[in-house]
Amino acid sequence: MKIYLKNTGIAILLLLVLFSCNGVFEYSPYVTQVKGGLKHIITRNSDWLHKILSNAEGDIKFAMISDTHYDYIELKKFIDHVNSRKDITFVVVGGDIADKGLLKEYEIFEDVMKGLNKPYLTVIGNHDYLAGGGEVYRQMFGAYNYSIEAAGKKIIFFDDVFWESNKRPDFSWLENELKSTGSKKPIIITHIPPWGDQFSKEDELIYANLMKKYKVQLSVHGHVHTSYHGHYYNDETSYVIVPSMLKGTFYEFTLTDNLNIKESKLQ
């Protein structure tokens, strides 16, 4: 009996130690509760970016990757490259940050992105909505639709996921945002291109007409995994599709009057 008491005592002590550790026990892959330190990344990073931009001289350039899914090795390569590039001010990730929408995937992504010495901003992708992913994204990154100002341009991040989000994209929000742009030339970043699989013909028309009406300079997307750059609807708006991270490719956008767009390959 004595030995049992001793054993139980040790076991209880061990348990107490373990309970005090954070993240040692996991309840389910579908849990959506984001840890405090990982919250509100968009707000934090746009504040950071704002600070950088207020001291910046010369042209502002940003790099964009998309559809990282779980290709963390390529992502690390990209981070190493961008860290050594003084001319790139910030990074945009074009959605599909997670693959199955699991909290763990978001946590690993954030852990890898911590290595980046520049602010980054994100837009939500269809995979990010799977499982409890929509909620994880909201807690970890912030609003699905938002905009920032950089180098005299307004960059609008717009959630255009139809199926996984179980809602229609908020086109009226987008229109209001475009209306209030003023003299700044707008750039729109969404995950799915208007000719992508989740857009119906009517929705495609709504989007393309908005671009035409407000003379949007550039509309950037991901989702398709292959690269594209051109005037898809033969109007003023140029469309870019940033390929998936696995392809080892990213785009560089220089925010000058005419916008300089360049596709780069990682070594």
Binding site: Y30, V31, T32, Q33, E135
Partner: peptide, 14 residues
Amino acid sequence: GYVPKVFSTKAIHT
């Protein structure tokens, strides 16, 4: 198995 709402946004039944 059950995860109550306090640990996730929605209760999880497994």
